[in-house]
């Protein structure tokens, strides 16, 4: 089971003078259970691509296959796709609206037409999965801290029990601890439930720390698609398109320049410490 994106092109405002090509011949395979980071500067097409995965945007040409079925087939059930591919938008807490957190998380599964018991069970499980404290279940969502609101909003999508979870910058505006907690929870979710995770992020450090695979978008095309190690090896090309490597990678390059024979493709602090200790212990 997987998602296959097959020669997808997307043009905004086709047939008008403002027509802009937002996606250019995208071909990708997303197997089950991977944790994928999507990076690219503002306007590179990453959000547009994500919107295609749950049918919010429809390719101008090309096909997308979800679990072997073409989602553009006339009899394809888009509603089912949307429950299978959960999309957490930027600042998802702006979409919280119910009187308490629990009721808010119930909203999605309730709309799937499930019976009340099942709805509540799912909401409960989803809140547990994101590490939301039980004593706050019946609090108004508007009285929570930024990190807690964000968790509640992610739980609302998880309660739909998606197979694929797409998160658009889930840590924007959170303090460093809140950022680590959310990413840690997401990683745990992927490991324990085998959910496929697509994480759109502007933080190279976060992506390097958590994901198995990075897709780099630039001008609507896939520029790189590889492990963090391989992708950040191309840090010069990344800089040309407004991205960078994690700071730690630059540190390793600086050490290498000074004659220390360390591995320069290191992307996390733990790896870097291990490398340097080879020479200083």
């Amino acid at each position: 089971m997987s998602i296959i994106i097959d020669h997808v092109n997307y043009i905004y405002g086709e047939g008008t003078p403002l027509a802009t090509k937002a996606l250019n011949d995208i071909c990708l395979t997303i197997p089950d259970g991977q944790f994928i980071g999507i990076i690219g500067h503002t306007g590179s097409g990453k959000s547009t691509l994500m919107q295609h995965l749950n049918g919010l945007a429809k390719a101008t040409t090309g096909h997308i296959y979800f679990n072997g079925e073409d989602i553009y087939d006339s009899d394809y059930d888009m509603k089912k796709l949307r429950s299978k591919v959960g999309l957490v938008f930027q600042y998802p807490e702006h979409q919280l609206f119910e009187i308490d957190v629990f009721t808010d998380v119930c909203f999605g599964p309730k709309n799937l037409g499930l019976d009340r018991r099942e709805v509540e069970l799912r909401a409960y499980e989803a809140l547990e999965k994101v590490g939301f404290p039980k004593e706050l279940f019946y609090q108004s969502p508007f009285e929570l801290s930024g990190g807690q609101k964000r968790r509640a909003a992610i739980a609302g999508v998880l309660a739909m029990e998606p197979e694929v979870l797409i998160l658009d910058e889930p840590t924007a505006g959170l303090d460093p601890k809140g950022r680590d907690e959310i990413l840690h929870q997401i990683k745990k979710l992927q490991k324990e439930s085998g959910m496929t995770i697509l994480l759109v992020s502007h933080s190279m450090e976060d992506v390097a720390e958590y994901v198995d695979r990075i897709i780099v978008m630039n001008k609507g095309s896939v520029m790189f698609d590889d492990t963090p190690r391989e992708v950040f090896h191309h840090y010069k090309e990344l800089e040309e398109v407004g991205l960078s490597a994690p700071q730690v990678t630059y540190i390793m390059h600086a050490l290498r320049e000074k004659g220390l024979n360390v591995d320069t493709d290191v992307t996390t602090i733990a790896e870097a410490a291990k490398e340097i200790l080879k020479y200083y212990s």
């Binding site: 303090d175 460093p176 601890k177 450090e205 700071q247 730690v248 602090i269 340097i276």
Partner: peptide, 10 residues
Amino acid sequence: RLDVPQVTLL
């Protein structure tokens, strides 16, 4: 709940 720059942490 804060952090330090990567180089500081390393």
